[in-house]
């Protein structure tokens, strides 16, 4: 069992197996930025490689979409006309009807159907 102090010393001893003029790590970049940079890089190439991050992305489904109740998750065909929430039965509709306006957007965001203001 090593103590905290020993741990700190041990971790510091890692400099031994590193090169003396260690390169500084690149700064933090978010995933979105990395993907944007990749797009730019690919656009600048003369010939596109056959496989890229973008070509292997799966296509949308061509099967008919199944719809499920947003509250319970059971299959349903009903949709509330005023906030687009799908509901299973009368009981769920009671909840949908009295839903505050923020909550319905939260339910919709679960299946990516919420309104996004840009």
């Amino acid at each position: 069992m090593s103590t905290m102090e020993e741990y700190i010393n041990q971790m510091e001893s890692a400099y031994k197996f590193k090169t003396q003029h260690k390169r500084k790590n690149p700064r933090y970049k978010g995933a979105r930025l990395i993907i944007n940079e990749e797009t730019r890089r690919l656009n600048s190439l003369n010939k596109q490689p056959t496989t890229t991050y973008f070509t292997i992305s799966a296509p949308p489904s061509i099967k008919p979409l199944k719809t499920y109740c947003d509250i319970t998750g059971l299959p349903t065909n009903y949709k509330s006309p005023h906030n687009q929430i799908r509901y299973l039965n009368k009981e769920c509709y009671e909840i949908v009807k009295n839903m505050p306006s923020g909550v319905d957007q939260q339910y919709l965001s679960l299946r990516g159907a919420n309104v996004v203001l840009k």
Partner: peptide
């Protein structure tokens, strides 16, 4: 199997 449940517009693993 149905990514549309969570709002992702891609086919499921079986369909692909």
């Amino acid at each position: 199997f149905q990514p549309s449940i969570s709002g992702i517009d891609q086919a499921g693993i079986v369909e692909i």
